[in-house]
Design a protein around this nucleic acid. Sequence first.
DNA 1: CATGGGATTGACT
DNA 2: GTCAATCCCATGC
Length: 194
Amino acid sequence: MGPDFYDRPVLEVAQDLIGCVVAHAGASGIIVETEAYHHSEPACHAYAGLTARTKPLFGPPGVAYVYRSYGIHALLNAVCEPAGVGAAVLIRALEPLDGLELMRERRGLEPALDLCSGPGKLTQALAIDLELNASPLDGGPIELTPPPPGWEEVELVAGPRIGITRAAELPWRFAARGSRNVSKPWPRGQRDAA
DNA sequence: CATGGGATTGACT
DNA sequence: GTCAATCCCATGC
């Protein structure tokens, strides 16, 4: 998917990315959970403004923003909105599609449900690291492609974002309804379509 | 130049 | 349920 897909409001892209396929290093998965981040709210790294770290966030859309969290995990984001606007979609969970054995090797785990059910897990399963920061999501090492048959029209649920301390109340987390591969079970009563 | 915190995970009680 | 691990970088002196 080219830059035009990402050159839109980050909330739209976050919802449209559900069902799309991420592929890297011989493994791939379907996106089942995302979160939107925008420079206008304090949970986003871009909130602090343009720095060496957040530079890709303010760059052209359709680019990966990979950063290290808690000193251990790499998290994968897709940069959105026009260049100059700091916004990105965090890929939080995948449903494993291809390369399951590679994923198991990299994760040291067997259950398919545990391979990509978290932002730090899926980067490990797909061997995505900080080197891929600022690389294109179309024609680059990481490839994002449109939903396979059956995933074009996925029913979505929205809810509050996870694991952040600021602006945690914004319902900017999206997931495919009923997917068992999400990072955390959806709370009861949180079934509003986005 | 030193320090502290973070969009997480996994192991342990 | 609680807690440590561990590195990049924004912030402050």
